[in-house]
Design a binder for these strands. Structure first.
Lengths: 218, 218
DNA sequence: CGCCCGGCTGAACGCGCGTTTAGTCTGCTG
DNA sequence: CAGCAGACTAAACGCGCGTTCAGCCGGGCG
């Protein structure tokens, strides 16, 4: 299962990358023997390097978080916002990392909640910049709005995963690019409509919700 | 593990209900022996009634779909829309069914995609009624909009599940009522804001998206 | 009554899992 | 050169899984 391009990586890195891919494709129930076979090593070596299956998953999580951190740092220091968005849209550069994150969001675990928090913080920042630039409306609850929008993205990914398993769409863990284009095909128009025109015609609903919240916990 | 109220059920129904609960709480990796113990029967009896573990899950799926079908039928024939919403909001009556659906949405499978399709159809119908009543704005793509909104709900559930596993919120599969109130505490205000006022200030974005879609596939 | 059939069980089977152990090979170091 | 350390493996272990099988028990029927 080892490819020619893997030969320059240490066995440890090769195992970690193989696990990333396996877990993304088959979920975290995938066996150590399958990961070992993908990496071209013996099952015992996996445990020699990572201690246990949990250790392997923790190493995968750590590696993904580090990749995200590096990307974030780069986009903060060297890029304009436009370049950042372009990089985000180019999923090919992330390789199995994207699929692994999607699988984690579906399965839970520490990476999932940390990733969500990261996304919420980044979204809040982007929205604040948009408000300052005048392209985004200000909010009575910027943090809540960011969290709500992140939940929407999680839902779109989850529905893509469900559709993929039913054979109706490309899988975001197997072919992120195809899945993303398929998703944008149907979701962009509803999204733009929802974000540029009010869904509900009664403008007093927000005030009513705020009132009710105040009445419950003053 | 059998409770007094279970005694009047046939063993088959008791096993199915126990499986519903186990799968909802622990996921579909839960063992047959655990289900059998919960139902107060031997593991062999589970297979006697359902043939295999897959058969048991299929029976759970079928039972849940039947419950949903009955609920839908009742709400179509006997209830006003207001009563329907009130019933939907009262999660206690669904018991383990709600948690099982949430778990299915996270894990995929046939029930998940069928449930999503059901929700999309129902949402489209509700939105159409809202448009007719004047409370909801008309859409250029009613089906897409319904699907998009359902994806949002799936995302909220999935984030509740992630937060629950991180110990930050009640679990929607363990205590649906608590999870739902915790969710509404932070999500209602952003939702109302998002649905009553445009998030983006540039009104031409929808037309741009429609143009781009036309240009790609005429 | 004798029989049978379906609900039901205890015990076992084979399998694949994560993990352990003992040991080999290789390259560096004193 | 001897010796050590670390990468690596073959083989096995114990466990829990889904599943099978032979048989028990009780009620309905000819």
């Amino acid at each position: 299962m080892r490819s020619a391009t893997d030969d320059d990586l240490t066995a440890r890195a090769r195992i970690r990358d193989a696990a990333l891919l396996r877990f993304a494709r088959d979920g975290f129930g995938a066996g150590l023997r399958a990961v070992a076979a993908d990496a071209g090593v013996s099952p015992a070596l996996v445990l020699h390097h990572f201690g246990s299956k949990d250790g392997l998953r923790a190493a995968c999580d750590a590696h993904v978080l580090e990749r995200i951190r590096l990307q974030k740092e780069a986009s903060l220091t060297t890029e304009t916002p436009g370049e950042s968005m372009a990089h985000l849209a180019d999923l090919t550069q992330y390789g199995p990392v994207f699929g692994y994150v999607v699988r984690s969001l579906a399965s839970g675990g520490e990476l999932a909640s940390r990733f969500v928090d990261d996304m919420v913080a980044a979204t809040e920042q982007y929205l604040a910049a948009g408000v300052a630039a005048g392209t985004v409306s200000p909010s009575v609850d910027p943090a809540g709005r960011a969290r709500y929008l992140v939940a929407h993205s999680v839902g779109l990914l989850q529905m893509a995963l469900i559709d993929a398993e039913a054979g109706r769409a490309p899988s975001p863990t197997l072919d992120p690019v195809a899945a993303f284009t398929a998703l944008s095909r149907w979701a962009v128009v509803p999204a733009m409509e929802l974000y540029t025109a009010p869904l509900l015609t009664e403008p007093g609903l927000l005030a009513a919700a705020l009132d009710q919240l105040d009445r419950e916990e003053p």
